[in-house]
């Protein structure tokens, strides 16, 4: 029963990791950009959530109504103002610019919020649980998992059933020809980053409710998200959810052996899958 519990808790944790990963996966799919600052942007989302909840007294889930648009706006500005200039055939500029961005974000947050761990207070939601089949399930993890499914479903629907999604796919296929269709790729990329950071905002706020956070934890979240993307297979959002779940389960099972092994077990699971299935479990596009 303890093991079953670990698997279930790990699965629910995987929902959070899938949310970390979804934004990463989205922007890689559309513009082949790997954003090293992604983890720090998740943390930024958590801090924005903290600021909104403490200053307005709103419940964090309602605060999302402010945090999501704010992050989307930041994403659009970031893409148009900075990241668009790095795109091209050369791999180094986007990588190093987002790396520099990561350093700036992390230290900027440190400057404003200090290194003290913070937590977003969500009242009863933090501790509420239901019992099912002898297991005690926290409402928050269950809700997080449900939100992850809803977000991924929403992204898929946007991608395949809207004009915006059509434009995303067209620009991803062939930037030049997409421009000939009257699509301004810089604007489309801006919208993609806005969407990605909107999702990141959700991930950040849920992270902030679940655990305490400080400015330094971004790189760890980047790595979890990245592992979920690779395990699931590039360009496949549902695969990313599975990847997040595998990572989460590996971590909770590792923690059952020894609490010090939790994160390590996740990395090892990732490396094992990389060794036997280099393109992930459900590959769609080749990187």
């Amino acid at each position: 029963m303890e093991w079953l519990n670990a698997v279930v808790q790990g699965t629910l944790l995987g929902g959070l990791y899938a949310l970390f990963a979804a934004g990463l996966s989205l922007i890689f799919g559309i513009m082949r950009l790997v954003n090293i600052a992604h983890g720090d942007l998740i943390v930024l989302g958590a801090y924005l959530g903290l600021v909104v909840t403490t200053s307005t007294g709103l419940h964090p889930l309602l605060a999302l109504a402010f945090v999501v648009p704010a992050m989307a706006l930041i994403g659009y500005a970031l893409q148009r103002g900075l990241l668009n200039q790095t795109l091209g055939d050369d791999l180094l500029p986007p990588l190093l610019v987002t790396f520099g961005l990561s350093v700036i974000l992390q230290n900027g947050l440190l400057e404003v919020f200090t290194a003290d761990p913070q937590k977003i207070s969500a009242g009863a939601l933090e501790t509420a649980s239901i019992s099912a089949g002898g297991l005690s399930l926290g409402i928050l993890p269950v809700l997080t998992f449900a939100i992850a499914i809803a977000v991924i479903w929403g992204l898929q629907w946007t991608f395949y059933h809207t004009a915006l999604g059509r434009a995303f796919r067209a620009v991803s296929d062939n930037q030049d020809i997409a421009q000939l269709m009257g699509l301004n790729r810089r604007h489309i990329f801006g919208l993609a980053m806005a969407l990605a950071l909107g999702v990141t905002a959700i991930a950040g706020v849920l992270l902030g409710i679940r655990t305490s956070f400080d400015p330094s934890i971004g790189s760890g979240r980047l790595i979890f998200g990245f592992e979920a993307v690779i395990i699931g297979g590039l360009g496949n959002l549902w695969g990313t959810l599975v990847g997040g779940v595998i990572l989460g389960v590996a971590q909770t099972i590792g923690a059952k052996f020894d609490p010090g092994w939790q994160i390590l077990a996740g990395h090892v699971a990732f490396l094992v899958i990389l060794a036997i299935r280099p393109n992930g479990l459900f590959p769609r596009v080749s990187a």
């Binding site: 059509r166 434009a167 796919r169 067209a170 296929d173 062939n174 020809i177 699509l183």
Partner: peptide, 14 residues
């Protein structure tokens, strides 16, 4: 140079 991830109809619509 059609868009491979778009259907025929979507290529026309775009």
């Amino acid at each position: 140079q059609l868009f491979p991830s778009l259907s025929v109809r979507e290529n026309l619509i775009i």
